[in-house]
Design a protein around this nucleic acid. Structure first.
Length: 423
RNA sequence: GGAGAGAUGGCCGAGUGGUCGAAGGCGCACGCCUGGAGAGCGUGUAGACGUUAACGCGUCUCCUGGGUUCAAAUCCCAGUCUCUCCGCCA
């Protein structure tokens, strides 16, 4: 959420930032609502002040046994006015808030401006796509032939975009989760969190999924729960409505969770294989930082995610997303794209974003520099480290052999009972 | 699911409808004291919003939302959460 005070003080800056995202116009509506609201607020606060003063006077008079019925009558009419104004203000605030909650974050200065992924900028590449003396197979064919993936039974159990992992496939999934968690905990200094997979609406608003992207979520009945689309939601919201001590920043969390996405609007895209599922596993990195360190912590977070691909020896590239391709809440976002021989292209396997104070303002996550200092909003960041299903796909495709077997990356073998190859 | 108890500031804890944003304690910050530390003493210590060049001033908030009243932490209603006992359950 943008700061209404920023909009008020610097409307041109906000307008320019939103224009980079291909939207605008709103600023004037926001300003008008804001002005209207403040105007009425001043009036009603004066009336309330009068009520408070007179009420005390009435108390005094009654204590002195003096008649106060004329004052009491006067206050009744004042109260009617207050009630009316309060209602108007409530409506204005609701409108303003609704509007603010649907305005995306402003891009950082160095984010390339463009309407979609065409304007993304490749930052660096690591590793070389493997050369195969045969036609490389897509992971779903390898996975089915090796009896690791069962798409048909996934569909039988649940429907399209659900998959069953079997035998060494299930083991590989679990190995990757543990390998990534151990890496980030032991080498990168993150604290592990295992959160609920169902959260309330406040969490979804806090990180920006709601109110705008309701159709992307699975909502659960009975109760008012949402299935988390990413661990970002529960982990960032851990500190919702809290004021954090300065010494505790930056906070670094790593969390394995299943993730659930409705994939509304993605009909027909990536219908085969593990790339786009309604349920998938992910190890997520989340940081809470001070404003002055978030840029460097963002770079460090990207490197922590890259380390996973490097240790797995999977070729990838780092892409800086354009203003139009970034997520709603992000101020800057790097995607890690892994090489997939079956697709003969790079595909997103991690998305690392700096949200600055956008989520913190929604979720009211603050910190204090000094014991007596005013609270300030933290900056929040997160990135996949990594998406497990897509990592499985990348391993199957990059490590496939001419005979259809798949070699297990060395770092995973301790997690796979020492197995070196799946045939 | 049944029965009961509770929710007050960073924490503990008081609070008869009016002088209560809230006693007291702890913690914390600053100062005094000390060779230094501790103890002791003093002062200060919620947040949001509005207004102001600023110092300030005002409004709201005692779990949340309604209601009664000129006036609510205090009375009434609904809800949420926590705890205890019983039942059920991985």
């Amino acid at each position: 959420m943008l700061d209404i005070k920023l909009v008020r003080a610097n409307p041109e800056l906000v307008r320019a930032g939103l224009a980079k995202r291909g939207m605008d116009a709103l600023v004037d509506d926001l300003l008008r609502l804001d002005l209207d609201r403040r105007d009425r607020l001043t009036t009603v606060e004066n009336l309330k002040n009068k009520r408070n003063v007179v009420s005390k006077e009435i108390g005094r008079l009654k204590a002195a046994k003096i008649d106060a019925s004329n004052l009491i009558e006067e206050m009744k009419t004042v109260n009617d006015e207050i009630k009316k104004l309060d209602e108007e203000i409530r409506e204005l605030e609701e409108k303003l808030n609704c509007m603010l909650l649907s305005v995306p974050n402003l891009p950082q200065e160095d984010v390339p401006v463009g309407r979609d992924e065409q304007a993304n900028v490749e930052i660096r590449r690591w590793g070389n796509p493997p050369e195969f003396p045969f036609t490389p197979q897509p992971h779903w064919e390898l996975g089915e032939r090796l009896n690791l993936l069962d798409f048909e039974r996934g569909a039988k159990l649940s429907g399209a975009r659900f998959t069953v992992l079997k035998g060494w496939g299930a083991r590989l999934e679990r190995a990757l989760i543990n390998f990534m968690l151990d890496l980030h905990i032991n080498q990168h200094g993150y604290t592990e969190i295992f959160p609920p997979f169902l959260v309330n609406q406040e969490c979804m608003v806090g990180t920006g999924q709601l109110p705008k992207f309701e159709e992307d979520m699975f909502k659960v009945t009975p109760g008012e729960y949402y299935l988390i689309p990413t661990a970002e939601v529960p982990v960032t919201n851990l500190h919702r409505e809290e004021i954090i001590d300065f010494e505790r920043l930056p906070m670094k969390y790593v969390s394995y969770t299943a993730c659930f996405r409705a994939e509304a609007g993605a009909a027909g895209r990536d219908t085969r294989g593990l790339i786009r599922q309604h349920q998938f596993n992910k190890v997520e990195l989340v940081k809470l930082t001070t404003p002055e360190t978030s840029v460097q912590e963002h770079e460090a977070l990207v490197q922590d995610a890259e380390k996973v691909l490097q240790l797995l020896n999977l070729p990838y590239r780092v892409v800086l997303l354009s203003s139009g391709d970034m997520g709603f809440a992000a101020s800057k976002c790097y995607d890690l794209e892994v090489w997939l021989p079956g697709f003969n292209t790079y595909r997103e396997i991690s998305s690392c974003s700096n949200f600055e104070d956008f989520q913190a303002r929604r979720a009211n996550i603050r910190f204090r520099r000094e014991p007596e200092a005013k609270p300030e909003f933290v900056h929040t960041l997160n990135g996949s480290g990594l998406a497990i299903g897509r990592t499985v796909a990348a391993i199957l495709e990059n490590y496939q052999q001419a005979d259809g077997s798949v070699v297990i990356p060395e770092v995973l073998r301790p997690y796979m009972g020492g197995v070196t190859v799946i045939k």
